[in-house]
Write a protein that binds this DNA or RNA. Structure first.
Ligand SMILES: NC(=O)c1ccc[n+]([C@@H]2O[C@H](COP(=O)([O-])OP(=O)(O)OC[C@H]3O[C@@H](n4cnc5c(N)ncnc54)[C@H](O)[C@@H]3O)[C@@H](O)[C@H]2O)c1
Ligand SMILES: NC(=O)c1ccc[n+]([C@@H]2O[C@H](COP(=O)([O-])OP(=O)(O)OC[C@H]3O[C@@H](n4cnc5c(N)ncnc54)[C@H](O)[C@@H]3O)[C@@H](O)[C@H]2O)c1
Lengths: 207, 207
DNA sequence: TTAGAATTGTTAAAAATTTAACAGATAAGT
DNA sequence: ACTTATCTGTTAAATTTTTAACAATTCTAA
């Protein structure tokens, strides 16, 4: 199940969340066009994605939601759940930890780091905050594979480098500073402001 | 300058931010491959994007940074700057307002809304927080064109509908709840968890 | 002043992604 | 049982996006 297109992986995550909602609402089966409507894409795309992961629906009945959620989980999650660190316990860092805590997903934040004494040695939603100096030590001890950078932009490159040295395998960067990592580390840059500027652009051009 | 590919628009926003950084660092000109390195894309792509917006560099000297920033601004910004509302003054809502405030960009948050009495009638980074009931009134009075939804997911569809009724033209949705809007409204769904799950997927498959 | 290196701008090719088209299967109604 | 509506799964086509290729231009320096 390795060669899924990037975009498909992204959509699978979204399918799963929507499907869980439907499950909670009491539905057991769903049609491709229903999923499509929920996510504003076409039903063809949904069917194609589902085909790619090797799932089959029942004709005239649709897809079994529970099974799909389970299958997507198999593809996206790891058995034991992934262990994550958040670096920079400001607004966004804290928001993230609280959010994941409530969701109880397979993605577990198991440590956080900061340099501000007010934040260090405190616990946020069960996540302990260490001084940045202990980054490498804790990451290795706790077998953390993913780092989320929510520090001020200026220090992001340095933090990034330290994460890589410590052996992290994936980084999600929330700062607007573009980072560099070796090939074997997966880097996702998540830029909230670009999204907003994109909206602004399209609003401007639809006037 | 209407028919820019979606992806190009996105990159232009990123170019601008990086270029501003370079400007601040004292550079006046930059080569396509330098921009490319900053953003982890190819120099061809940079040149192509720049071509599409009708800018020209100087051979062997590169692109004039100041001019490029100005041109990108012309394409992306509106003259007067866009007026924005944030609905839901929790962690993310506040983070956003503070961030935009510091940046002093053309994107101005001019109002925010909540239902929690603790938040209402207070000011965050110069942005006043109104009760949700006044949404339509304020949006129309203040000529707000863009809404950022950072409420709890459950109420997002309702908020969205109210925004549309009030005449908003673009929505940036931070909740994991997919929304529906009429064709003339531009909707961007920004899902932080999907990004994280994507990282997790690729980490898993690189092991 | 000429050769060589560097860099842009553009067209063409390739790759990735989305959409269309439609055959085949099944449930529901008659 | 037969017909019809509806959906899935899949292959093929279309579109979008990225990458390659290279001519043209400018600077450097022998
Ligand atoms: N925190 C994260 O990392 C994260 C990640 C992904 C998605 N999200 C989503 O982003 C959204 C905001 O997250 P947050 O951490 O800022 O949440 P939060 O709980 O801190 O803030 C929500 C705010 O919305 C207000 N609110 C409630 N009902 C409202 C209504 N009807 N109208 C206007 N305001 C209302 C609340 O009073 C509160 O101030 C949520 O939907 C959350 O699921 C958060
Ligand atoms: N807030 C937004 O809406 C928004 C939007 C786009 C991008 N961003 C970016 O996201 C990042 C975080 O934003 P925020 O609003 O949470 O910022 P914040 O200032 O609230 O939090 C930053 C945290 O990082 C800590 N920190 C500082 N230096 C550190 C270091 N060397 N190592 C570890 N921690 C360190 C600080 O003590 C603080 O707790 C920033 O880079 C910001 O530019 C924010």
């Amino acid at each position: 199940m390795k060669n899924l297109p990037d975009k498909t992986v992204e959509r699978l995550c979204q399918y799963r969340r929507s499907l869980n909602n439907q499950l909670a609402a009491g539905k057991t089966h769903i049609f491709s066009h229903e999923i499509a409507n929920l996510l504003h894409i076409t039903s063809v795309q949904v069917r194609r994605d589902i085909m790619l992961i090797g799932h089959s629906g029942t004709l005239r009945k649709g897809y079994d939601i529970k099974e799909m959620v389970k299958l997507i989980g198999k593809i996206i999650d790891t058995k034991e759940g992934q262990r994550i660190a958040v670096i920079g316990m400001g607004n966004i860092g804290k928001a993230f930890i609280h959010y994941l805590y409530e969701k109880r997903s397979k993605l577990k934040v198991v440590a956080s780091f900061d340099v501000n004494p007010d934040k260090i040695d405190k616990t946020y939603a069960d996540v302990y905050c260490y001084h940045l100096d202990r980054l490498k030590e804790i990451i290795q001890k706790e077998d953390i594979k993913i780092g989320i950078i929510t520090t001020p932009p200026m220090v992001a490159p340095e933090v990034c480098e330290n994460l890589v040295t410590a052996g992290i395998k994936g980084i999600l960067n929330f700062t607007p500073k573009p980072l560099s990592v070796p090939d074997e580390v997966y880097l996702e840059e998540y830029d909230m402001i670009t999204s907003l500027e994109k909206v602004a652009f399209f609003v401007k051009h639809n006037e």
